[in-house]
């Protein structure tokens, strides 16, 4: 078997293990779907009541943002699970088998795409129930979902590296919350960035989350001509800019995480 073929085959074996575990401990799935439902409802009815936007319903504006935040939080599950796996004897079994060195990480990140797909389905239903509509073609709509999943997948490799670097899953959870919350808030996720203070505005404009959200909004037709994106390169080319980030994240963190995995496990 070629080494790439082996890496994929072994990665899928580990993916299956992770998916079985998710099915048997559905708590993870329950909470990763409950929190987006809660966010959709809270933001739509609390913020939506006070945030009038020109030419677009707040719920339409909001959904791309909530999706982005949810899938990024979803990708942090990669880190938690790896941090947890590393404390168990099972990791020694994996390392003593003639399997691809990348398989544990590939299997983890693949399985976490599965979690994100489930959360997205739940959110689509919730969104539709509170009045959200996609105004693009089916293909554009799917492209939006694809972009979200790819972005989350690339972030999950960053999460993998952090998960392998911390001492316990609890530390990872706290750390990731502190990081993800501001990153997804200092962006166009929930409100337009026009009235942000200057520094935050610049951060928001170059924040890849903003580009992702903008790209998805455009693909879903959830934008308004009266609410044009700021005239900065990332938001004028949101698909390209967020795509470059995905590529960059993967190029940097796939090799780094695999190397870290080998080192951590070799202690």
């Amino acid at each position: 078997m070629s080494s790439v073929g082996m890496a994929v085959a072994d990665g899928l074996v580990v993916t299956k293990r992770n998916l079985l575990k998710i099915r048997r401990v559905p708590d993870v799935l329950v909470f990763s779907t409950l929190s987006p439902i809660m966010f959709v409802l809270l933001f739509t009815y609390i913020f939506g009541s006070a945030i009038p936007l020109p030419g677009v319903d707040y719920v339409d504006f909001l959904m791309a943002g909530i999706f982005a935040q949810t899938v990024v939080f979803g990708s942090s599950f990669t880190g938690t699970s790896l941090a947890e796996d590393m404390t168990k004897g099972l990791i020694d079994r994996f390392r003593s088998l003639p399997m691809a060195r990348s398989a544990v990480l590939v299997g983890r990140t693949f399985a976490d795409v599965g979690i994100n797909v489930v959360s997205m389905v739940v959110m689509v239903i919730t969104g539709l129930l509170v009045g959200w509509r996609i105004n693009g073609t089916v293909l554009e709509a799917l492209a939006g979902f694809g972009l979200l999943l790819l972005f989350a997948y690339s972030v999950s490799w960053l999460m993998a590296l952090i998960g392998l670097s911390v001492r316990s899953p609890e530390v990872f959870n706290n750390a990731s919350f502190i990081v993800i919350f501001p990153i997804t808030f200092i962006a166009n996720t929930f409100v337009p960035t026009n009235n942000f203070p200057t520094v935050l505005k610049v951060v928001a404009e170059w924040n890849p989350i903003s580009a992702l959200v903008q790209a998805v909004r455009e693909l879903w037709g959830n934008t308004s001509p009266q609410l044009p994106p700021p005239d900065v390169w990332p938001l004028q080319h949101p698909v390209l800019y967020s795509g470059l980030w995905m590529l960059g994240l993967l190029l940097v963190f796939v090799p780094l995480s695999i190397r870290k995995y080998q080192r951590v496990a070799a202690r």
Partner: peptide
């Protein structure tokens, strides 16, 4: 070194596939 959320059979199957 067994996965506690897999069945005995699934644990063996996983190891065998990884060999």
């Amino acid at each position: 070194a067994v996965d506690e959320y897999l069945t005995g059979f699934e644990n063996l199957e996983m190891a065998g596939r990884l060999y």
